[in-house]
Computed example of a mutant assay.
Amino acid sequence: MTQTPRLQITNLRRSFDGRAVVDDVSLSVMPGQVTCLLGPSGCGKSTTLRMIAGVEMQDSGAIYVDGKLVCDTVFRVPPEARSIGLMFQDFALFPHLDVARNVAFGLHGPRAETQARVAALLDRVGMTRHMNAYPHQLSGGEQQRVALARALAPRPRIMLMDEPFSGLDDRLRDDIRDETLEVLKDEGTAVLLVTHEPGEAMRMADEIALMRDGKIVQQGAPYNIYNTPTDKQAAAFFSDINVISGVVHGALIQTPFGQFLAPGVADDTAVDIVTRPQHLKIDFDRDGRGPNPTIAEGTPARGIVERARFMGSESLVEFRMDYDGSRLKAVVPSVFLPQVGTPLWIMIRRDRCFVFPKS
């Protein structure tokens, strides 16, 4: 039996001053699933979230919760009746209410039940001892925990989160994200998270919808999105990339690193071969050649170290390549930090390369 999506949006569109900010966006989120809308600033992520929440009206398209229509261009359930919780970057706590009353805000029913729900949530997020404190007396991480408890108090079916962790310092952020995810999973809430940080999306999401210019350009599990990008821009959004240009002849691309396969690509097509810095390998063999270079292993090409930076667990080495003066980056273990001006030979892992027609 097919499970009904907790949240489903179909063909949402929204334009401002004649420009499509959200352009034919469709996606679904299952109960207990975390889906991330990932993309650069201005790509339409937050506008999509506001339409789902009901604070922004779409030009076309429909929104469903548990299979029931909540909004199209004719019918509209008010925001407060959609069973949708909201969490934002600024936490939006009421400064004149203490922690317990912030969490209780919006709850209805017998006082004893309300107090029990507040107490249970504050215990769940580790804020019981701060229940009588006011927001200005709390740290950023503590305010985030209170905001989570308040958003969960009415037992929403869906949680919308718009950059909720960006105001926290780096060391605290990972812990808060993990704690928040655990609580949301325990509650069985469907989560739609907006962020511009690929690391956050991969850490939290079961599924990522990558947005660009108002459209979802790729959607899938984090592993698949990262390892099978749909185009060069998608690959570059998740990390630095190296790009080597070439032309296809007989399903092969001739490069200074040897031949690359391009099955199904027409002859004379100009292409970019894209690879990530961690997939460049330094060949320490003195004459710059492996024992038997093949099409799978590739051929080493020589570059001169232009910069080497220690990054903690790894080093980032930038090369100026002999063959055309282009620059490539390699990520290597931090124990290796070559001097500027050192000539080194580089190989590229064929199984970690992507070939895209030049746009």
Rank of each mutant, 00 (worst) to 15 (best):
P5T: 09
I9W: 11
T10V: 13
T10H: 11
R13G: 01
R14I: 14
R14Q: 11
S15H: 13
S15D: 09
R19W: 12
V21A: 15
L27Y: 06
L27N: 12
L27K: 05
L27P: 06
S28W: 15
S28G: 04
Q33N: 10
T35N: 11
P40G: 14
G42V: 07
R50D: 14
V55T: 14
M57Y: 14
G67R: 01
K68P: 03
V70N: 08
C71K: 10
F75W: 11
S83I: 00
F88C: 00
Q89P: 00
A92D: 02
L93C: 00
L93I: 04
H96G: 02
D98W: 02
A100L: 11
N102P: 01
G106I: 01
R111H: 06
E113N: 07
A116Y: 00
R117D: 04
A119Y: 05
A119Q: 07
D123G: 10
D123Q: 07
H130T: 02
N132T: 11
N132K: 14
G141T: 01
E142V: 01
Q143V: 04
L148Y: 05
A149S: 07
A153W: 13
P156I: 02
P156S: 01
I158N: 04
L160D: 00
F165A: 00
L168Q: 07
D170F: 08
L172P: 03
D174T: 11
D175R: 06
I176T: 08
R177V: 10
R177P: 08
T180K: 12
L181Q: 09
E182T: 14
L192V: 09
H196Q: 09
E197P: 11
E197F: 00
E197D: 15
P198T: 05
R203P: 15
A209V: 12
Q218C: 03
P229K: 12
A234C: 05
A234S: 08
F237P: 04
S239Q: 04
I244K: 06
I244R: 03
G246V: 10
I253M: 03
Q254A: 13
T255W: 13
P256G: 15
F257S: 02
G258A: 06
A262F: 15
G264T: 07
D268Q: 09
V274A: 03
V274Q: 06
T275H: 01
K281D: 15
P293S: 13
T299D: 06
P300Y: 12
A301C: 09
A301T: 02
R302I: 03
G303P: 05
I304N: 12
E306T: 14
F310V: 12
E318P: 10
M321T: 03
K329L: 15
K329A: 15
A330E: 13
V331M: 05
V332E: 13
V335D: 13
V335F: 14
V335Q: 06
F336G: 02
L337P: 04
T342E: 06
I348A: 08
I348H: 02
R352S: 13
R352Q: 08
C353M: 05
P357W: 10
K358V: 13
S359D: 10
